[in-house]
Design a protein around this nucleic acid. Structure first.
Length: 280
DNA sequence: GCGCCATGTATAG
DNA sequence: TATACCTGGCGCA
């Protein structure tokens, strides 16, 4: 269940494990069998990520375009020298086997063999990616400052900001003390810049530790003498999935409400309603 | 063992 | 707005 940091981590790990040498490409499940047969035995040039998209580059401007969706996973298993790859478990749509590792793709919403044109079209449709040094946050700002949609929705729009998902959305708005319901038109440039700078830092950190950690040093379990968070996500967060629990900063109960068909989480006190503050 | 939900998106209606 | 995708972790029996 990936946000942009997961895909960048995956691209780095896949490149390290397979790039530069021929790979066996297969589709044990069968749904990618014809394409896999075309690529089987070819050299994997590199794996790259953009937003939540992943591209496996093969010679001749051919790319495997992968999107994990909500439940997809691409697992990399190291192989000892001469070790056989294990039998596939479950519905493996795509399997890569190299000398040093085997990687299995399951549950992805997208797995297709495409050309450079299609790849460029996907890239062109993506907004500013905080993980890319060449990202253009000013272009995202133009979209945001002229939109009546809420900042909580805008951050999830991949055509505006690429790679941010439900966890980073909730956490960055908490860290910036911004009401998720504020329309884009109500934000000031400096507030957007602060969101962007924070995302750049948080997501780069997410790639390093392969986890979403957003809690500042002064609010860690050790610093506050509180229980560490224990769940399948692992990372320490302020509001994500903490409905009803006390905010680490002010003690108010964390709230949740659907926004853009996803559960939004926020602290009603730290992220005070912008309308109330704007009263003349 | 079963049902539910979830870091997401595309497509049908 | 609803549903397909079809995995994995959790709570509960």
């Amino acid at each position: 269940m990936p946000e942009g940091h997961t895909l960048r981590r995956l691209a780095l790990d896949l490149t390290a494990a397979f790039a530069g040498e021929p790979v066996r490409v297969g589709s044990p499940q069968g749904r990618f069998a014809a394409e896999a047969a075309d690529l089987d035995g070819e050299v994997l040039v590199a794996a790259e990520s953009a937003g939540k998209h992943l591209f496996l580059a093969f010679p001749g401007e051919r790319f495997v375009h992968i999107h994990l969706g909500l439940i997809g996973a691409f697992d990399i298993l190291p192989l000892a020298a001469g070790e056989e790859a294990p039998a596939p478990r479950g519905a493996v749509r795509l399997r890569l086997v190299g000398r040093r590792a085997v990687a299995d793709l399951r549950g992805a919403t997208q797995c297709a063999l495409i050309g450079a044109e299609r790849r460029d079209a996907v890239l062109a449709g993506l907004g500013a990616d905080p993980l890319r040094p060449d990202a253009d946050p000013d272009r995202a700002w133009e979209r945001i400052r002229t939109s009546k949609r809420s900042i909580g929705e805008l951050l999830m729009d991949q055509a505006i900001v690429a790679g941010v998902g439900n966890v980073y959305r909730a956490e960055v708005l908490f860290r910036q003390r911004l009401d998720p319901f504020r329309p884009g038109t109500s934000l000031r440039k400096g507030q957007w810049q602060a969101i962007w700078d924070d995302l750049v830092e948080l997501m780069a950190d997410g790639v390093r530790v392969n986890r979403i950690d957003t809690v500042r040093p002064e609010h860690t379990p050790e610093a506050m003498g509180r229980e560490a968070r224990v769940d399948d996500h692992g990372g320490e967060v302020y509001v994500y999935r903490r409905t009803g629990q006390p905010c680490f900063v002010c003690g108010a109960a964390v709230r949740t409400e659907p926004m853009a068909s996803r559960n939004l989480f926020w602290c009603p006190r730290c992220q005070r309603r912008w309308r109330l503050r704007a009263v003349r």
